[in-house]
Amino acid sequence: MTRRFSRWLVASAALVYLFLHAPVLALMVFSFNDSKFSASWMGFTLEWYRRLVERDDILLGLGRSLAIGLGATVVATGLGTLLALAFHRHRFPGKRAAESLLYLAIVTPEIIMGISLLAAFVAVGFSLGTLTVAIAHVTFSISFVAVVVGARLRGMDRNLEEAAMMLGADEWEAFWKVTVPSLMPGIVAGALLAFTMSFDDYVITSFVAGPGSSTLPLVVYGMVRRNIEPSINAISTLIVVITSLLIYLADRSMRRSAR
């Protein structure tokens, strides 16, 4: 590429990065702004954070989101890891169809997953609540865990397991003492991503949550639709900080596993 062309390329990429990050950064800065309505800087305050703590709906929603996230993550990580092992280590009839099914679950628009689960739960008379939300979260996380753990499996050396078995370990021991420890970075990354998706999901949850089982995103959506107040900036800032940390850890875990 000519130098002028590549300079133009870098400049346009920089603008796109600005577009990707400036809005959320502005949101975060103004969560500390001492003004209820204005988007001009009026001085520093922690008032909006203090108000969050006073709101029961936010605290309850946060508690529910954490509980559902932890439960869904454990189940999805277990099932997804087993799927990844089956796909990368074994042949079985219907494997291609099974893999396509997982990809289909990833690309299916969230709204379709949400309403079809709602229709199914109602059809079998299952009452909506925290449990239906957790089931839905496991369903959309499994495929992602399988993909992430699968990426780790692909890069793994099988010689270690074979060596362990030559030294007298049976498959069971080789699996727990060699396979699982070296697979751990992938499993951790998958679990962190599953938790993040559960913690952030609005669309699917909005359909399968019953009365009294609103998660944090549902509470925030209600706040955004009702009236815009700086408390929303504050709770958004906290959400962004938490998820960024989780994603950073997942990314680091994956990169370590790639090495």
Binding site: L20, H21, P23, V24, A26, L27, F30, A39, L193, T196, M197, D200, Y202, P217, V220, Y221, V224, I228, I232, N233, S236, I239, V240, T243, S244, L246, I247, D251
Partner: peptide, 17 residues
């Protein structure tokens, strides 16, 4: 990768803001 995983809802609110 970061915005890919950041809450879609928060990002839409940032646009409103």
């Amino acid at each position: 990768i970061l915005p890919f995983w950041t809450s879609f809802l928060v990002r839409m609110f940032a646009m409103i803001f």
